[in-house]
Nucleic acid binder design. Structure first.
Lengths: 337, 337
DNA sequence: TTGTATGCGTTATCAC
DNA sequence: GTGATAACGCATACAA
């Protein structure tokens, strides 16, 4: 490929001059400018970003680490498309690295983005602990923001949603409607989000003096398949329930499907609530209520903070985003209302 | 950040030696190796990939250009997750660039990846013409593969699915089942895929001497909303139909939803077929039949070819992937069968 | 307004 | 086995 030197020769100037007209820094006469642009066009010159970034020690990129397991479904698409659009609106490029299926791979993905010298990094952790995230934040001079975790020492470097509170609110809403037999499908219990949502369910019951019945709780793994299987398990246990809370929308979708197959009508016989994002739900599963996590706003805030830090700013505020309970036809009054 | 030079000093050796132990090229005694590793650990040294890539003029990355409009839905997630996994299986990293909403932005995205010196590039074009793609392929020495287009001059640099044939086959299946009044919702007609699918519909009707009725064709824009609106338009036209082909699954989903709302039963009164990917459909819209495009296999082949080319290989074969018609409960015999 | 020289952090080709 | 040293392509401080 044509390099800057070739352009310079062709235009009869020095590399430095070419660099000046390209960057706009420094004075250069209109006529040499013209000659340079001509030479660029003729030679098909294209800047080598590796060299430029090395020289300026700045890449104009934000790195994003997400785990492969999140790749499926609407939630991920939303996350990614918003992140990409917002970074580019700020004149930068988003670079995605796959956290795959383990803590080691998640670490490797972060390291890769750091080695690439991304200006700043966004991490949506799945396997790494809050402790480790806190360490990572302090060990690197690049600004780092963590999504969906509440860091202890660097609370201003994260943006999260209080899953326990949202879950509790959802269950309390069901209770207010008269439901007493509320089944619950958990997410993976090695994930904080999964644990928090279950914990919210427990709190809500305790708050209203409803006994916790183990046979109404079944463990899922976030996928529609496990949601469907969860329903099967509940039915096999012969546990009767008038409503069902699934720890995310994918599982809720699988659960609803399975209820249908078993001839149980939603919402007439069982009300269902999920979590995360119901963007597509109006068309796919109209009977699905959901606690909507405001991904867009969270990404927005994250990127704002990173850019602000890149400009030398400092933060001392925490920010949390409440999930919004969106009830639809799927939630009706409980049997005793 | 610590550089190689600092590591060298700390270990009492030269940069060259450090480079050797890191790359594994060249002989170096075990004891100096140990000293170097120790120095690396102490200093928290991390290689600067910008510098390394500049020096080796190779980045070990594949670039992928996709348009933002594709970002929504399962099809995109599948595409991306498979592409990422396969590139990483081959020891490389996938870098994503957003083609956004116009030809110019699509060009810019390609250019960006080229400027970043990606080793090879995959383009899933949306706005650029086949002509321009052909030019791009020949103007650059990096291996380039184009997905979902049939290039003229560089037929071995693309992998595509014959949308016209798939569409025709789907419609012919409906005809074989006895359907005669077959409605059709197109995709965006500025996209080749949209045009081809419509064309397949026309051919099928012509083939079986069924008159083309304009009132049965309505234009959509790939989204569930336009699918729903398409149904509204058809109903407003008072055009009766026993089956409906939507040019992708998203529109089919929107259409089915709208049919439900209007009290029209699927599939008892109207059979529906969509296109693309029904991976999630079993849980969301069990009544949706679909022509499944084998994204996974296509990505697989694409990446295989790129890696082969990077190793100096040459191709002269074309490859097309037939869409697979997956019929479900949603397709029944037509009224006259 | 322009050119020269140096540095960015590596790799790689020589010598020793 | 190891150490200088020249690339890699660009930016920039300093001269001119």
């Amino acid at each position: 490929m044509a390099t800057m030197l070739e352009v310079a020769k062709r235009a009869g100037v020095s590399k430095a001059t070419v660099s000046r007209v390209l960057s706009g820094n420094g004075y250069v006469s209109q006529e040499t400018k013209d000659r340079v642009f001509e030479a660029i066009a003729e030679s098909g010159y294209r800047p080598n970003l590796l060299a430029r970034n090395l020289a300026t020690s700045s890449t104009q990129t934000l790195g994003l680490v997400v785990t492969n397991t999140l790749y499926h479904g609407v939630y991920f698409s939303e996350l990614l498309s918003h992140a990409a659009r917002m970074t580019e609106d700020r004149g930068r490029q988003l670079i995605l690295a796959d956290g795959k299926h383990s803590a080691d791979e998640e670490r490797a993905a972060i390291q890769y983005l750091l080695d690439l010298r991304c200006d700043a990094i966004i991490i949506y952790p799945r396997f790494l602990s809050v402790e480790e995230m806190d360490e990572i934040v302090e060990q690197h001079q690049q600004p780092i923001m963590v999504l969906n975790r509440r860091l202890r020492r660097h609370a201003s470097h994260c943006v999260w949603s209080d899953h326990k509170a949202s879950s509790q609110a959802a269950v309390e809403k069901l209770i207010a409607l008269g439901h007493r037999d509320i089944a619950f499908i958990t997410g993976s219990l090695d994930s904080p989000t999964g644990v928090e949502r279950l914990s919210g369910y427990r709190s809500a019951l305790a708050q209203h003096d409803i006994a916790l019945r183990d046979e109404l709780i079944v463990e899922g793994k976030w996928t529609p398949e496990t949601g469907a299987r969860g329903v099967e398990t509940l039915l096999a246990r012969d546990a009767s329930f008038s409503s069902l809370v699934a720890s995310n929308d994918d599982m809720a979708i699988g659960a609803i499907r399975q209820l249908h197959l078993r001839g149980i009508r939603v919402p007439q016989q069982v009300s269902v609530i999920g979590f995360d994002d119901i963007a597509l739900a109006p068309y796919t599963v109209p009977s699905l209520s959901s606690v909507k996590i405001p991904v867009t706003a969270m990404i927005q805030e994250t990127i704002n903070r990173l850019i602000f830090m890149l400009d030398g700013g400092e933060f001392n505020v925490q920010q949390t985003f409440p999930g919004e309970l969106c009830l639809r036809e799927s939630v009706t009054a409980g049997p005793r209302a």
